[in-house]
């Protein structure tokens, strides 16, 4: 299958029950798992997106992906095997791009296709980023645009322009968050997360709560995917995104003049979204430089401010 990787002490070709992995001394493990149902029609790209999404959790902590295992559910009697092969191929390409090694996997027959990875990364135990690392004064940088949940809903509805939506999803949801991870490591950032199911607002609120700070998001500075804004206006907001907004409502302060449509998009559930980084002002210039070098966005979407018990933890400005 693939050439034997130094990290693996067992061989994939020998049908072992488990993989034995050599691990560098003095490092800590980052362990994560994520899988979901197809959000695009092309199986190869679905594989890439699902893998990029699972690998993202490691990058968000400032880790480097080390090994990955496939998680597969597939209706083998209903669909040709080629489709499964394409999905796995897409996943494999992302694992390689991330510099990790495939260590195995597990598949079950299921009514509905699902794919993802269990990823193990390595991180320096004294230097990693987490939800609780935001500090007042940090700039909030976002590395991918917002709106993939709405786009996926439009695609599911086969709305006019679906091909374009799919291309945008390939480009952004299929992109690794490696650049953001590099920023965390090089600049020793301590506050970061990746933007996924709870939406930009939900994840940022989690960080604010964990860090005991308040945060301000400026709608005008958030890179919304234009097609997603248009679709949202046509009623293509998934129920999950509404649920996010409702769940967070008591902790959110929405300034007048905020476009309600953009407020909804702040809570749009993202698939394989970007990293949200808390960057001290002195490190912002270098962070932007690294991100832009790698083709990621470096959108300065808001600020971290001191906690005020009388105000909403997340404040949305126009």
């Amino acid at each position: 299958m693939t050439q034997q990787d130094d990290r693996l002490l067992t061989s994939l070709g020998d049908n072992e029950d488990s993989a034995i992995v050599r691990f560098p001394a003095g490092k800590a493990l980052v362990q994560t798992l994520d899988f979901f149902t197809p959000i695009v029609n092309d199986p190869y790209w679905f594989g890439q997106i699902a893998a990029a999404n699972a690998l993202s959790d490691v990058y968000a902590m400032g880790g480097l992906p080390y090994t990955a295992m496939n998680i597969v559910c597939f209706p083998i009697k209903k669909f040709p095997k080629e489709i499964l092969r394409e999905i796995l191929h897409g996943g494999m390409d992302k694992i390689r791009e991330a510099g990790a090694v495939l260590a195995g996997g597990h598949s079950v027959e299921d009514e509905e296709t699902k794919y993802g990875l269990s990823v193990t990364g390595i991180v320096d135990p004294d230097h990693f980023a987490s939800n609780k690392g935001l500090r007042a004064g940090d700039h909030l940088l976002l590395t991918k645009p917002i709106g993939t949940g709405v786009l996926a809903t439009g695609l599911k509805a086969d709305w006019e322009g679906s091909e374009k939506f799919e291309e945008i999803l390939y480009r952004w949801a299929g992109m690794l968050n490696a650049a953001g991870g590099e920023v965390i490591r090089e600049l020793d950032l301590i506050g970061a997360t990746d933007v996924t199911g709870f939406g930009l607002g939900g994840h940022l609120l989690e960080m604010a709560r964990a860090s005991k700070v308040d945060v301000v998001l400026r709608l005008g500075d958030i890179p919304f995917i234009p097609e997603a804004v248009e679709l949202a206006g046509m009623g293509m907001i998934p129920a999950g995104s509404f649920a996010n907004k409702k769940f967070c409502a008591s902790l959110v302060e929405i300034f007048p003049q905020c476009d309600p449509l953009l407020v909804d998009l702040v809570f749009d559930a993202q698939t394989s979204g970007g990293l949200l980084l808390g960057v001290p002002e002195a490190k912002v210039a270098r962070a932007v430089e690294i991100l832009e070098q790698h083709g990621a966005l470096a959108a300065y979407v808001g600020d971290v401010v001191v906690f005020d018990p009388d105000r909403g933890s997340l404040r949305l400005h126009p």
Partner: peptide
Amino acid sequence: DNDAACENVTRFLGV
């Protein structure tokens, strides 16, 4: 039967 659908339908009809 849910507020998400209510909101989405209202928006769509507005457009």
